[in-house]
Design a binder for these strands. Structure first.
Lengths: 405, 405
DNA sequence: CTAAATATTTTACCGACTGAAATAAATATG
DNA sequence: CATATTTATTTCAGTCGGTAAAATATTTAG
């Protein structure tokens, strides 16, 4: 009761261990205590105690399945541990221009249900945004006979510059005001902890927890939607920079005093590969004024329109240049190019990959692998869910420790 | 004696604390125990024990100087602690194209003496390089009546791709062979531990320990010599990427299919700002075939040669583009542009600074400060020395722990 | 000189983790 | 079938880094 500082410190230490154990179980799917011990280079005794805590909290469980022993078949069989998917529900949301998508997942990340709602306005006031979110959540929960009260956490992905640690939105294309602290609104309108993050960071989290970055310590996730985004995972953690905002890959300059970008600057990568940039290129010469989406351009290109093919090819070249710069600067284990739609084929063609390779300074070590990940529609919401699961895990482990004392 | 693993683990923990204490003392210059305790958020008791160890090892000492108490003048006065500069000597070396420079520093980083030697060949075999280094070290030590045996550590800076953790040189412009493990050669030819590192990383270390990055956790150091280099400090540690090599800032692409670079690729920043690139620009049209150095171009520009001024200006523009990309990607606390000579004026002109500012995506948070650091001739060697001091400190603290057991 | 203030050291203890021993649960073997 | 062997997990008695609180040291204020 009295040992205020001591207990905080020791709790943090214990929690860190418990979280590392949880992380092992999540990334391996199912794993025995002895394997966790050797993976974390710690003693079996420690794992026994950590897993006992996690089991009593309902976060993990023992399962029956056959586990093979180190060698031979003799000896006490290993007991596999698994996440207890029923332990809690998390909602992941992505607020896009005309659409809000929601996904409900269990603790393992399995989809329970999902939902989409049209948005009337691309930009909303903070209060408006939160009540829209609440509504979307209620609708989603209703689909499976749940109420919003059942949620353990809500994770919200926005495009823009966001300080996730503080739920503070410097700027977002979905919000009419700048520099908004969402914590008060969340506390007032939502019945459980909620987390706001930059959407590209969320996808990086999803790749780390469930996707192609599982188990990797250093990788980059390039997201492609209407523009391009970047999530940076260094040493297993999201790198957010000093101001806590995401990296502005889309606004790195690929041409001195080049094409005009929506941000007002010139030569941004996004001004060469963003949807609007491609459409502008197609329409500016009056070559095609019915171009509405990048898919239209793809269609044209595939049916033999040289101009369309050139526009796409140039975007690919610029994209390749940008990605090779990322590799030159970060030297990551792996780069994951993640997109929801198929409309980014032109950014992962063999030619672009070659260009990337050729733009990376040669070392004798092999180039980082470049993986392309087509997620489908729910990419962003799933990303949000991944972040939500992580945050809720941390909260649960902390509660656990608090109760134990 | 028997507790093999336990002792390793606990030693690491203790050493980490001792090193953090040492780091505090180094970055503050002189500081009292109570201040260290509050800076590290630890208890005074821990600091008492850590400093006692460091004092008995001769790494630090108590000094007399007046220290002001928190408030008022009553109370037992604080005792200031300082590095004991006499505890050991470290040599820092930089191997450049035609020159090898050596600096001898004490534990505080104060210069004891320095020395330069002409190199016959820009590229040498590994064995040749090490014996050349040994010779240079012997000459340097002789200047102050010491022998090479007095050195506690030797740090060697090379341009190229180097895995410092293993003293492994993937490639260096100073070495004729690729993929060389220098450890055996070092053990054979040098009387004390030696460390090989990429030269840009060394300058970053120097900025962190003694320079403009003192106390900063996240910053970038851009080095300018014949080309440009980048050292990345994240979370207080050098970021080296997956393959352990330095970031290749000079070979990030600033123009699609642009100017040909020495590395064989096109559009590299270095192909626009490197010495040879500028000289090529001046000579290619026969405009000036007596151009030997960038200083010559400066001279010309200052005496009204428009062509020279334009060449320099263009280099500045490209450099600004590259630096703003760094800021967009890393969002660092601060960027330090470090150069030895004055020949990089054109890269830190007001115009270039403005260009950098204009290339960074606007957040409401202030832009990271861009600091320009003119080091003088010994920049690289001093950088090596900084790294050497750090490495030797780690070794000494480890020895200390080993002896205590 | 005494009281008050502040810095440092000492001391008793806490808690995370460990090694070793104990226990559990399987197979191999005769 | 009983027993030895093997391997996984748990229990238990430390160990070690660190802490709070008490003790001590050293100063100024009054």
């Amino acid at each position: 009761m009295l040992k205020s500082k001591a207990s905080v410190v020791s709790l943090d230490q214990r929690n860190a261990t418990r979280l590392r154990v949880l992380e092992q179980i999540r990334s391996k799917g199912s794993v025995s205590r002895i394997d966790i011990a050797s993976a974390l280079e710690t003693s079996p005794a420690t794992i026994t105690s950590a897993t006992a805590d996690l089991i009593s909290a309902g976060l993990i469980k023992e399962i029956e399945g056959e586990a093979q022993s180190k060698s031979g078949k003799r000896g006490r069989p290993r007991v596999l541990l698994q996440l207890d998917s029923h332990s809690f529900l998390v909602a992941g949301l992505k607020v896009a221009r005309q659409m809000i998508s929601v996904i409900l997942v269990d603790f393992e990340g399995n989809e329970v249900t999902s939902h989409k709602a049209q948005l009337e306005d691309a930009r909303m006031s903070p209060a408006n945004l939160i009540s829209t979110i609440r509504l979307a959540l209620e609708d989603t929960c209703q689909q499976v006979g749940l109420s919003i009260e059942h949620l353990a956490g809500i994770s919200i992905g926005l495009a823009g510059q966001i300080d996730a640690a503080r739920n503070f939105v410097h700027w977002s294309s979905s919000v009419t005001e700048r520099n908004i602290d969402f914590n008060p609104l969340i506390a007032k309108e939502l019945p459980c902890p909620a987390f706001v993050e930059n959407d590209a960071n969320l996808v990086a989290k999803a790749e780390q927890l469930f996707g192609l970055g599982k188990g990797l310590k250093n990788f980059l996730v390039v997201t492609i939607e209407h523009g391009v985004g970047l999530g940076i995972v260094l040493d297993g953690r999201l790198y957010r920079g000093k101001r806590g905002c995401g990296a502005e890959f889309g606004h790195t300059k690929v041409h001195l005093d080049g094409a005009l970008c929506q941000c007002g600057q010139r030569g941004c990568l996004e001004a060469y590969v963003g949807d609007y940039a491609l459409i502008r290129e197609m329409t500016v010469t009056g070559h095609a004024d019915d171009m509405q989406t990048v898919s239209d351009i793809h269609t044209r290109a595939n049916s033999g329109d040289d101009r369309a093919a050139l526009v796409l090819a140039r975007a690919g070249q610029m994209f390749g240049l940008g990605v090779s710069n990322l590799i030159n600067l970060f030297d990551p284990q792996c780069i994951i190019v993640s997109g929801a739609q198929m409309s980014f084929e032109h950014l992962c063609s063999a030619e672009v990959m070659t260009r990337i390779q050729n733009g990376v300074v040669n070392v004798d070590a092999p180039l980082p692998e470049i993986k392309v990940h087509h997620w489908g529609d729910l990419m962003w919401a799933k990303g949000a869910a991944a972040y939500g699961i992580e945050q809720v895990s941390i909260l649960k482990v902390k509660e656990l420790a608090a109760n134990a004392s």
